[in-house]
Each structure stands twice: as structure tokens, then as C-alpha cells.
């Protein structure tokens, strides 16, 4: 059974919002616990560097 999904529907939402602030704002208006992340591309968006970082982690 998809218990983690059932939990998502049953329990209050706790949201990490990556990107558009408006989406976080509309969740806050609905009294949802939300944290805004002003996401930026990793390693300045340098693809080779991102691959390297992923391999190191």
C-alpha cells in the first residue's frame, strides 16, 4: 500500500518550495507550513562541475 502517499493526504502538508515565491505565498495564505528556498543552479550552472560534484557526493 502506498502508505507515504496516504500520509501525505492525511497529515498536514509541510512544504519545501524551490523556485517561484508566489507558490509559497499562496500556501502560506492557506496556513500551510512552508519554507521558501531561493534556489540557484548548483556550481554556477556549470554542467561539468555539477557532474563532478554529484560523483563526489
Amino acid at each position: 500500500m502506498p502508505d507515504k502517499i496516504e500520509e501525505l493526504l492525511r497529515e498536514p502538508l509541510v512544504v519545501i518550495n524551490l523556485g517561484l515565491k508566489g507558490f509559497a505565498a499562496s500556501l502560506e495564505k492557506q496556513e500551510v507550513e512552508v519554507i521558501q528556498v531561493d534556489w540557484i543552479p548548483p556550481a554556477g550552472g556549470d554542467e561539468e562541475m555539477i557532474d563532478l560534484l554529484d560523483k563526489l557526493l
Binding site: K4, E7, L8, E11, L13, V14, V15, I16, N17, L18, G19, L20, K21, G22, F23, A24, A25, L27, E28, E33, V34, I35, Q36, V37, D38, W39, I40, P42
Partner: peptide, 24 residues
């Protein structure tokens, strides 16, 4: 317009909200 944030990565978000159940 929206909540101010000092976080820049998913990992930052997870530290702040270890009980999170959804990422948007």
C-alpha cells in the same frame, strides 16, 4: 512578493524543515 528566504538549496530546506512531506 513572497516569503523572504536565506536558503538556496534543497538541503538547506531539509535542515529547516526535517518534517517536510512535499517538495514543490
Amino acid at each position: 512578493k513572497g516569503p523572504a528566504s536565506h536558503l538556496q538549496t534543497l538541503e538547506d530546506g531539509l535542515v529547516e524543515k526535517p518534517n517536510a512531506n512535499l517538495a514543490v
